[in-house]
Amino acid sequence: MTISIAFRCCILLGACLMANSALATTAASQTNPANEAAPSASAPPPLAKKAPQRIAVLDWTIAETMAAMEIFPAAIAEKNSYQVWSQSPAMPASTLDLGMRAQPNPDRLIRLAPDLILASQDYAFVKGLLERIGPTTLLDVYTPGQDIYENLRALAMRIGDITGHADRAARYIAQTDKALETISHELEPHRGQPVAIIQFIDARNVRIYGKPSLFSTALEKIGITNAWTAAVNQWGFQSADLTHLAALPKDTTLFIIKPYPADLPGKLQDNVIWQALPAVRNNRIILADPIWTLGGLSTVLRFAQTVRDGLQEQDANAGSNAAFRFPGYQQ
């Protein structure tokens, strides 16, 4: 999150908090006159700390991890978009939408009166303001230079501890580890096979994912080689044109992450470079549904399943000629 985004959050949160504080002060003066003595009472014994029930979440990776452990947030940011990109686990209808992740709606947060607000370290600039609405904890999600999978396992354990469900976190991690190991065994015939993961920007340019990235992490876990070995940015991808794809190993399978521009199929049909790619000529193009590139363990597993299903279907159709080389081509 940039400083400008954080500044907008500060302005919005600050304005709503000031208005809310003014209303609270007025109400207090009406119900508690200054000359009314407060009743004396001995302090009650401290109560055992309860696990938070009404949790507001501003980060999708945290929200996905909670949902996977069946700990559903009371509210998340950009709920509708989350349902498109993270998909599973889905949020229940009772989970409220807090507006944009970069600019959450402070009025909705105030009305929710959360027991706890969970966010990533990107919200450090506005933590002080968030804490005026409710207890706030910032979690490490994607830490540069650290192993992504271990980060996500640690995140699950931390959420389990915070919510009082450490047992669910341990079970979730164990189930994910086992599922990935199973997929790795299922893909034994493809051990070391090169795969490239791309998203189209337009008909000439793509984002291609390398290490470190969630996609590359998933490939490592199931014994598949990432064909892209060049440098990537802090988000795990590099912008490249189609000529870079021509430099990949000739037996590379291309996984294309949806969505892509509506006019892409027609333009690729007439693109000489695309048509000359070995992956295109040999029908090794696989489309994947939208996937949140900064997701949790569930997203790692979902992409691993996508790769397995795609490669196994490719095996089943080996030797057959494709009716077209990209969905939408005119035959």
Results as ranks from 00 to 15, higher is better:
7 F>V: 03
13 L>W: 08
22 A>M: 07
33 P>A: 06
34 A>D: 03
37 A>S: 12
40 S>K: 13
42 S>G: 08
43 A>M: 09
43 A>T: 14
44 P>H: 09
53 Q>C: 02
53 Q>G: 14
69 M>L: 06
71 I>P: 00
75 A>G: 11
84 V>N: 06
87 Q>K: 15
87 Q>M: 10
90 A>G: 13
94 S>D: 05
100 M>A: 15
100 M>F: 14
103 Q>R: 13
103 Q>G: 01
103 Q>V: 09
108 R>W: 01
109 L>T: 07
109 L>Y: 09
119 A>F: 11
124 A>L: 11
128 G>I: 03
132 R>C: 07
137 T>I: 10
137 T>K: 14
139 L>I: 05
145 G>H: 11
146 Q>T: 14
149 Y>H: 13
149 Y>C: 00
150 E>K: 06
151 N>A: 03
157 M>H: 07
158 R>L: 04
160 G>Q: 04
164 G>Y: 05
168 R>E: 12
185 H>V: 11
192 G>M: 09
205 N>H: 15
208 I>F: 04
209 Y>C: 05
211 K>H: 15
225 T>L: 15
231 A>P: 00
238 Q>P: 02
249 P>E: 01
252 T>E: 04
258 K>N: 12
260 Y>H: 13
260 Y>T: 05
264 L>I: 03
265 P>Y: 07
272 V>F: 01
273 I>A: 07
276 A>D: 14
279 A>H: 05
280 V>F: 06
280 V>K: 05
285 I>S: 01
297 L>Y: 04
303 F>D: 11
308 R>V: 00
310 G>I: 08
311 L>R: 14
318 A>D: 12
322 A>L: 06
